[in-house]
Design a protein around this nucleic acid. Sequence first.
RNA 1: GACCUCAUAGCUCAACCGGAUAGAGCAACUGCCUUCUAAGCAGUAGGUUGCAGGUUCGACUCCUGCUGGGGUCACCA
Length: 606
Amino acid sequence: MNIALLLIPTISKCFEEKFNIQLLDSEITFQTTRKEFEGDVTLVIFPFLKKVQEKPEVLAQTIGEYLVQHNPQVAKFNVVKGFLNISLSQAVWMETLTQIANDPNYGLFAANGQKVMVEYSSPNTNKPLHLGHMRNIFLGYSVANILKANGYDVMKVNLVNDRGIHICKSMLAYQKFGNGETPQSSGMKGDHLVGHYYVVFDRENKQATAQLLEEYKAAYPNEDPEKLAEKAAKNSPLLLEAQEMLRQWEEGNPEIVQLWQTMNGWVYEGFDVTYQKMGVDFDKTYYESNTYLLGKAVVEEGLAKGLFFKKEDGSVWVDLTADGLDQKLLLRSDGTSVYITQDLGTADMKYADFPMQKSVYVVGNEQDYHFKVLKLILQKLGRSYADGVYHLSYGMVELPGGKMKSREGTVVDADDLIDEMVKIARERTKELGKIDDFESAEAEALYHALAMGALKYYLLRVDPKKKMLFNPEESIDFQGDTGVYIQYTHAKIAAILRRAQASGIDASPAAFAAAPVLAPQEVELIQTLAAYPKRIADAAKEYAPSLIAAYAYELAKTYSRFYAELSIFNEADEALKSLRVALSAQTAKVLKAALQLIGIQAPERM
RNA sequence: GACCUCAUAGCUCAACCGGAUAGAGCAACUGCCUUCUAAGCAGUAGGUUGCAGGUUCGACUCCUGCUGGGGUCACCA
């Protein structure tokens, strides 16, 4: 039930009758009353003072009195300065709870006929996934869920960067130093094995570069050392070999292509294991090896339309200075494409596959500029989906020492972190000894659910746009504002519901309708439950799973207070007992649904 | 250098897009398990919201300047 809709008509009428003023519905907004004041919702009076020449207290008093007289759902009111605090009648809350209980899909919106594509993960195939990828992946997966809940037809895609100089580096190092080892022979996960050779390349390349630099210094003692270093880096024999390898790959050299397929295959096997552990999936996977030539036709189109221009050397550019951006290269002078060329082509290809109104790209904020440009060009080209392009730009996950760098070994590896979290969950659960009767497979599944709950909540509770800090010294918490706390609250309620069912307690609206005056804890719980649909809508509008995470915590916290302060099974009044069981059932339902939106499981026992 | 972005309790994060006395968790301290799961509940302490101005009934929120982090400005992806 929407509280605002309950009150707006009466307030509009009040303004009409008392002041002869027509207000738009959108001008009347409410906020929930702060808990230090009495009331349920608050109308801020100040914005109306421009239209009504009156003291705020007087106007608030007038509206309050009118509401009590003309709207039976308003029980009473009080005025504090320019704030009108409105208390709704108990019937409103009883009706609200009844509606929630009668709706098995509570919080979900009906299909809206719109399609949206969400691209996330998009890994390189030269190294395993790390904590930064995890933030990306959980964000993308969760946003997809949230959009589905809002009625969108969602397609989740992964665009794998499987080609380029980086993978050639791993391939070259493997060719030189790998001795034909495989994931099987080495016992290493495929993505880690390939990542290992990427590091080997970097190490060897550094050595070779340093050696070359010494030679240069000896040969040109009068040159600026910085310039020589630059030259050495460019001419390092290993790098040149890697570049040559890329050329041969593009020409289709069978030996190179074979190696590329083999090593990428290892990586995909490794990624699949990690994705599965993370509990995420995709509806479709694109590979850059198939898309990297796309986009040239788009460039031709832009030239023909006069949107782009060609320089003397044959390179193609777009001038975005009028939009406050720069000139941007779209095609090299040798006719080959650059990053944005591919992205233009890929955008069209995606639309051909799935004609969507919105297209979400979950990509780090270091690409803010790139996506501004991409969207602008698509708009200039008149693409129907261009306005729906949204770059879900998220901040980096930093370590106390600064940014994570794969090559310097300061990354937090995804597989390692998951294993570590599972280990902690196992130890902690065993200490508590509440599930000693579980089969071992059942117990392991729970440890995993708790580990992922802690991890996902940790990464998703922060506003996506902001950078966040991860301190490996302090393990991710299982207490307080955490995923595990919410899971625990759910498990606690599940126990209540099992007992209620065993005792044959009827928790239907008919059974609790006759409940006497509700306690504040009960009203607060109903209010929190009632806020759920709006939170889902807000989360979609902002592309922010953090709003769902915060809501789930708030609901769990509210229930925990209710649970600690009111007894359920010792309640003498049968209707009240039914009501409390119903409140528990609805809280469990909503908690489970909210957790599902952020990809977290809700255990029945823990 | 130009542009983008961030700065809130000791630490990690909130604050419903301008509303009331800026809230949680962690860490510290104090209570509460012979009654429904204590991975919990209640409480104490902790703040000049980086600094200086401005806008207004009202500013963590908007504007200007400054300081300090991060990022982007490649014929890399």
